[in-house]
């Protein structure tokens, strides 16, 4: 196959992109929109969580600890425990939300958390109805 002169010149056509608006966002002034359905942080509706630890059982990364609840919000919560998630281990597979019997555990689209100490990444899901 012979290489033609045209093939050396045609790529220069890319130069016209100089006049286009940049595709990147000016973070932090402009932020990317949260996407509905994105698998971000966990939320747990404490008024329906029954403390059954199904979520802890299914999590193969052993990211979930069941810890004692401060204020009982659900009289049906037999164990008085709610899940807390270690975000150093979680892979956001959302299996825990799949197996939650009352569907109280969910993922929200919020997903930004920066910290300088990885040991602080223990997250108590926000109490939000879904």
């Amino acid at each position: 196959m012979k290489i033609q002169l045209k093939n050396s010149i045609a790529p220069l056509g890319a130069l016209k992109k100089i006049f286009e608006h940049p595709k990147t966002l000016c973070y932090p002034e402009v932020k990317a929109q949260n996407v509905t359905g994105y698998r971000g942080f966990h939320i747990n509706d404490l008024s329906t969580c029954i403390g059954c630890a199904n979520c802890q059982d299914v999590c193969m990364n052993e990211a979930i600890d069941m810890i004692a609840i401060d204020v009982d919000k659900n009289p049906k919560n037999n164990s008085g425990c709610i899940p807390r998630i270690d975000y150093g281990r979680c892979c956001w597979c959302s299996l825990c939300t799949d197996v939650c019997p009352p569907d109280s555990l969910k993922l929200e689209s919020e997903c930004i958390w920066a910290d300088d100490d990885s040991n602080r990444f223990l997250y108590l899901p926000k109490d939000k109805p879904c």
Partner: peptide, 18 residues
């Protein structure tokens, strides 16, 4: 089509790849 022009038909790539 633009990729063809910029990359696959680009002489400098062809020269290296053929």
């Amino acid at each position: 089509v633009e990729y063809d022009r910029l990359f696959f038909d680009n002489a400098s790539f062809q020269k290296r790849a053929i």
